[in-house]
Amino acid sequence: MAIYGPERRVIEWPRINETGFPGYPRPNGTYRDQPPNLTNVTAIAAGQSHSLALRKSGRVVMWTRRLTGDNRTDYLPNFITRATVKAIAAAKGGSTFSMFLLKNGSVLEWPPRNYSEIYSGNFTTWIVPRPDALLMSGSVKAIAAGYEHCLALLKNGTVVAWGGKRGTTQAGLSAQFKSIQVPAAAQANVTAIAAGMAHSLALLKNGTVVAWGRALPAGYNGATCAAIGCGGAPPPPGGPNGVPYAALSGVKAISAGQNIAVTLLTGGRVFVWGQTTTGLVLNIIPPEAQSGVVGIGAGSFWWMAIK
């Protein structure tokens, strides 16, 4: 998704029609297109099956690529569409919830998740309950949504995390749980946050990145530059908490994909680390992203830069 033009309209690509992805047809009526005349958009967020746009008025608009048939989740409730919203976030990598930061500094989630019931049985030891009193106190500055976990940046520079993943394996549960165990380094002087599938990032005032949760490889997953044709030396080995040394200073912005971390460095250069995917070596930086970049973004299996 992107905001473009003087009227600040929204464009999405590739377009997904009602027939669905190749090999995964859907019945007619399981798609709702972008509302007409959607202008004055200040922020956007793309989820697995839905899109969000925040207008200059503070109102949120949602449309869907795949409807559940449940009016409780296919349409935003009035208490969100009528609220004055400051920021939006859509869960990554297949989860379906969204987060809304209101102008009064409080945080809402939709659809609401009852953490005490959804994560029942033995899984309750792998989650952190939503800190409702804190999130409704007006002290939140920014939000980020992962796959099953949430981050909030408080006005005092502290990060708060909650949620967790039920998961199917011990390793999956452990990684998701670690993503909400905020380290001491992210308890002060944080200016930005980002959440991936099972990892979290924080940017400090001094330009350093703090990472926690699933450890992201700093190299090429064992592949050599010669084998993958990267045309240059591999990134340096990881520093504290698995963060490469290149991201320990001079970082201006951060973004998180499913299993990747994207940073914008001084001079407009992009640096990426994390897990590659079959046919996609995501942590190779093309020449176009070596300078002059002013914005970054990341999805499940891609990242992008704005020049």
Rank of each mutant, 00 (worst) to 15 (best):
V107M: 11
A83S: 15
L151E: 05
T266M: 04
V159E: 11
L203F: 10
A223C: 03
L76E: 03
C225H: 01
G229D: 11
V85L: 11
Y147I: 00
K252M: 09
I127V: 15
V294A: 14
Q34C: 13
G297M: 04
D74P: 05
Q275T: 13
L38V: 01
E288T: 10
E18H: 05
F100L: 07
K165D: 14
P286F: 05
L153Y: 08
G219M: 04
G164T: 02
A2E: 14
G196Y: 07
I228D: 02
E117L: 10
I180A: 04
L248T: 15
V140T: 14
T263M: 08
H199V: 04
Q258P: 00
P6L: 08
R72W: 06
I11K: 10
V128A: 10
T30A: 04
V41L: 09
M197A: 14
R15M: 05
P129T: 04
M1R: 02
T84E: 14
S137H: 07
L203D: 03
I193V: 14
G239W: 08
K141R: 15
T42A: 13
L134F: 02
P112W: 09
Q290S: 14
P111W: 06
Q181G: 03
Y31G: 01
S49R: 11
H149I: 01
P240Y: 05
Y245P: 00
G267F: 09
G250N: 13
P131T: 06
N78W: 02
R15L: 12
A53W: 07
A256I: 09
G69H: 05
N221T: 06
R15V: 10
G58A: 06
Y31D: 07
L38D: 01
L280T: 14
G163Q: 10
G219K: 09
E117Q: 12
L52Y: 02
P240V: 10
K252L: 10
H149F: 13
G231C: 09
W212A: 05
T73L: 06
W273T: 06
W162H: 07
N104A: 08
I11R: 13
L134W: 02
Q34L: 11
V262F: 03
N114P: 06
A90T: 02
C225Q: 07
V140K: 11
